[in-house]
Design a protein around this nucleic acid. Sequence first.
DNA 1: CCAATATGCAACCAGGAGGTTACCTATGAC
DNA 2: GTCATAGGTAACCTCCTGGTTGCATATTGG
Lengths: 114, 114
Amino acid sequence: MSRKTSSAAPRRRTYAPIFAALGDETRLAIVAKLSEGQHRSIAQLTQGTRLTRQAVTKHLRVLERARFVRSVRTGREKVFEFDPTPIRQVKEYADVVSEQWDQALARLKGFVEG
Amino acid sequence: MSRKTSSAAPRRRTYAPIFAALGDETRLAIVAKLSEGQHRSIAQLTQGTRLTRQAVTKHLRVLERARFVRSVRTGREKVFEFDPTPIRQVKEYADVVSEQWDQALARLKGFVEG
DNA sequence: CCAATATGCAACCAGGAGGTTACCTATGAC
DNA sequence: GTCATAGGTAACCTCCTGGTTGCATATTGG
């Protein structure tokens, strides 16, 4: 097999859009709300903010593009739910970087002591 | 004592600036480089990019404001080093959100089965 | 059918982000 | 001392972002 067995694209993972999606307080609040488990409509997610429904809609689009949320149209409502996938990627990134850092510290320690 | 014993500000933790700092490919590359453990000057960090030194300087300022890097002036060079603190906060955020999500799933499971 | 509710879409705006060029200053190497 | 190297500052440009208002469309409830 010279190619991957899976048909999934090998796609070098780019974390930037994931982090960019989290780089806004309003969107963090939406993620916090939806990660409570319940589905919420746009109108519901707008309540409690000082923003217009359209502004919230834009934030939801950003979150949806980064896969933090999914939406389903039910009747006249568009209902959003949390998707845990990108959060795992966030954790993955943090793990990779801090492991690299730990290894660097270990090498330094070995050099100093050796 | 009507006030906190510690002099540290109680400061509700806002993760948005941390994530925003990671929301750019160039800055992710800088973080990756510096987390290897070695200190790097601005000129060194500019090498390999297609950007000007000034552009890289701006990215470094963003990273420094979010505490991902520290800098020390040595002679005519400004040397940057990695700071692991905010990465831990990233992990912390991911843990909090995914734990909240897991609990939501557990409640749902209990409801369905109960 | 009609009114209220939920959302979509488009235009518009201000400010910030990311990048450049140009120029000035400081330090190190000979 | 002189020149090359490293960096700082500032002005400027373009595009994106976050927000608004205004209006159109779809669905629900009586």
